[in-house]
């Protein structure tokens, strides 16, 4: 079973404890080591809240379930604020090789919904391992691959 960032965006987020609907998945944030979905960003703009991956009771095909509503928190640091603002969004991001050549745009990112482990980046018709990511910024994702 594989999930993708493009499919996950817009999915309902509910509290397991209260069955309240808390919002929709707006973005996914990966960890600095680029191996894992670190957190989900729920809602946009000033209303954006973060929930860490380990606070989920399930990432299901129809809804994302949180242990309880208290798991939602404000962005805690600069990186999380930039992510909430969309600066670090991978899907739709320009992809550049480390040698300065354009590779296209990142169409999607796949991951395992059980563990949150990243599987691959889809760039054009290529599957690229997430370990080849050298840097992600507002301008581009830089990848250690040859074109």
């Amino acid at each position: 079973m594989t999930e993708s960032f493009a499919r996950a965006v817009g999915r309902r987020v509910l509290s397991r404890a209260t069955a309240q609907e808390l919002g929709l998945v707006a973005r996914l944030l990966i960890d600095p080591g680029r191996t894992q979905v670190a957190a989900l960003i729920i809602g946009k703009g000033k209303n954006a809240r973060i929930v860490d991956w380990d606070q989920l009771s399930g990432f299901g095909p129809d809804a994302v379930m949180l242990n309880d509503e208290g798991a939602l928190r404000e962005p805690a640091d600069e990186r999380e604020r930039r992510a909430a603002g969309g600066d670090l969004e991978l899907v739709g991001k320009r992809a550049l090789s480390g040698t300065g050549n354009g590779l296209g745009t990142i169409a999607d990112v796949t991951f395992d919904p059980e563990s949150g482990r990243l599987e691959s980046l889809l760039i054009g018709n290529r599957d690229v391992p997430p370990s080849s990511l050298l840097g992600i910024g507002s301008y581009a994702a830089v990848l250690d691959i040859t074109e």
């Binding site: 480390g98 050298l134 840097g135 910024g137 507002s138 830089v142």
Partner: peptide
């Protein structure tokens, strides 16, 4: 006019 981009940061 080519952008100057950081490898580590992905910033122009």
């Amino acid at each position: 006019r080519l952008p100057v981009v950081t490898v580590q940061g992905g910033e122009d």
